[in-house]
Design a protein around this nucleic acid. Structure first.
Lengths: 338, 338
DNA sequence: AGACAAAATGTAAACGTTTACATAATACTA
DNA sequence: TAGTATTATGTAAACGTTTACATTTTGTCT
């Protein structure tokens, strides 16, 4: 391993000067800089991040905690974050929690040991004690997509989920649907809760009765939503439309509908949430609540970077983005006459 | 920050003893161990990974380089790797290269500075000089999915892509198809090349003429495959079946077919490669070459871990897994009579 | 040319561990 | 019980940087 000392010896300067060159310190004679760079080149030297971090208390690494990287929503936002971080000299340590708080806790501990400069969470629960370790350590963090009740002064960037859900149901209502079901996401997450709220709000506003039979459970990934949709279709008064709390769930419902021999949208209309890539495929054509994912991820990263680099304990950045409805084929323009 | 010294003082032992406790060294009196653990508990101490890595030359971190995390194939394998690594005390630093060699080179440099214990690559090109830095540094690495010609003695775990493609074309042939097109992946990757080879081999074997007009270009992600499929459909002798080099490309072709008013599989049959999650959705039903992704990712990680932990420079581990064809709806069981 | 300010460089400590080696405590043997 | 082997603990150096401070060099002004 060639170290800063080797360079120093070769260039006939002190370690400190080499360090100055590496760090682009202004006060170094151009001639010296050149000498040092030459030695660096010749010996194929690159600095040791561990030693740097050890001394300077900055590792230029960020912990990113996601529920599930196979959910396209997270994959796409992670991509944005990783690339943007890389462009600014930060590396991303990626951890996936499977929505398990104790997993998250475990990863937070690991990342604290690794001395990350900050955290980005897209994995928090509404009740989530695990952030306390981060806060005690005094490390900056930003939440995206999901908020938590545990720390009101968190930095976050989220969507107006209630509005999104409202728009979805409104659309269905205007198409003539009156029996609109909800496959709700887990209420242990702000997204699940808020989207359910938006659904209920719309029902009330349009004078539709709140029928508990039309509300079924789902998880954001996995097969549960499929079974829940089946339950809806097999009930004695099935819905004419379904709003699902995310696209993955909507796709499961779609799958279940096809299994039941139902046609979408003729027999049942479908709206999802997230606008993942596949939603726009012509074989799917999922109507969905869309959000500017890139923007969300960008804001999350930039906010964190600003906090890390300024160290200024300003007011928490709390951004709420507005969703819009992207209309495709799964709702049709007419509802089936019953 | 509470350090090992604080613990030592509190427990009335030396730093070395604390270190021994932390590292589960055998030679420490149970009573002492308890004393130390108590102090650790009380002061809420956790060791500093940077300092550890600095001294012990092991960071328990692994660099994972992928082309594109939004491709479900990579997302799913990454998930497996991240989780499995976490279970063994390793953290994953994730980098995405967008199939750009210079990006890859850049990330390799960063990861070398960060003193990762090893690399996992699913991003290598067939001609790929960027690994040389890893090899010079003497760090272990494992390739998965793609091989490279640059280093014959690399550890890798890949699929028998040629066989996979052959199976796909064979299936189409047996269904009666004689004009079978290929949307080929970039030949700058082993996967693209090998899958094309399998296609050609099958053509030859079944006595089908090799028609260059039936072979079009695609990239593994992005819209290019859509345009290429359009070209096929708009030609004066369109194919009755298409084999695409991965599922994402097959989905693009599917989309293009629908845009052209073609029915799948009545007007055109479709086979993909990878068997990503959405392929099994009933609205899609993509026939595809499937592989045991979990297995591939598991082997990749376990192989790397073994090398890291044994340090033994054995024979390179070179694993080739066998694919199988998963038949769904996009081929039908009959071809259209022309 | 001399005095002073500014710029460039050097020195050495510090960051928080692990580890080779030395030493002390304990257990075992005859 | 003395002598020895074994186990437990301590000491101090080392890992490769950065940085506060000290020192030297260079430049500016009269």
């Amino acid at each position: 391993m060639t170290t800063i000392k080797d360079i120093a010896r070769r260039a006939n300067v002190s370690d400190a000067t080499v360090s100055r060159v590496i760090n682009n310190s202004p006060n170094v004679k151009p001639q010296t800089r050149e000498k040092v760079n030459k030695a660096i080149e010749e010996l194929n030297y690159y600095p040791n991040s561990l030693a740097r971090g050890m001394r300077s208390k900055k590792t230029h690494s960020i912990g990113l905690l996601l529920a599930d990287i196979t959910n396209p929503f997270y994959a796409e936002t992670a991509k944005t974050i990783i690339e943007r971080a890389g462009n600014h000299g930060y590396s991303i340590i990626l951890c996936t929690t499977n929505n398990d708080i104790s997993e998250q806790q475990k990863y937070i501990d690991v990342l604290l040991q690794r001395k990350v400069d900050g955290f980005i969470f897209a994995s928090v629960h509404w009740k989530d004690p695990s952030l306390s370790a981060v806060i005690e350590a005094g490390l900056p963090y930003v939440l995206y997509n999901r908020k938590t009740s545990a720390y009101k002064r968190s930095n976050y960037v989220v969507l107006d989920n209630e509005l999104g859900a409202y728009l979805a149901v409104e659309h269905l209502y205007k198409l003539g649907h009156r029996r609109i079901a909800l496959i709700r996401g887990p209420h242990t997450f702000s997204t699940g809760k808020e989207r359910s709220n938006g659904y209920l709000k719309a029902l009330k506003e349009f004078g539709l009765s709140h029928d508990e039979k039309l509300i079924v459970q789902g998880k954001y990934s996995g097969k549960e939503s499929y079974d829940s949709a089946m339950k809806l279709f097999n009930s004695n008064k099935p819905p004419t439309a379904i709003f699902a709390s995310n696209d993955l769930m909507a796709l499961r419902a779609y799958d279940a509908a096809l299994f039941c021999g139902l046609s979408v949208p003729r027999d049942v209309a479908l709206v999802g949430f997230d606008d993942i890539e596949i939603a726009s495929h012509r074989a799917i054509g999922l109507t969905t609540v869309s959000q500017n994912r890139n923007l969300m991820a960008e804001i999350a990263l930039d906010t964190l970077r600003k906090i890390i680099e300024n160290e200024s304990p300003q007011e928490p950045a709390q951004v709420v983005l507005k969703p819009m409805l992207t209309v495709r084929e799964t709702c049709g323009s007419q509802m089936k006459k019953i």
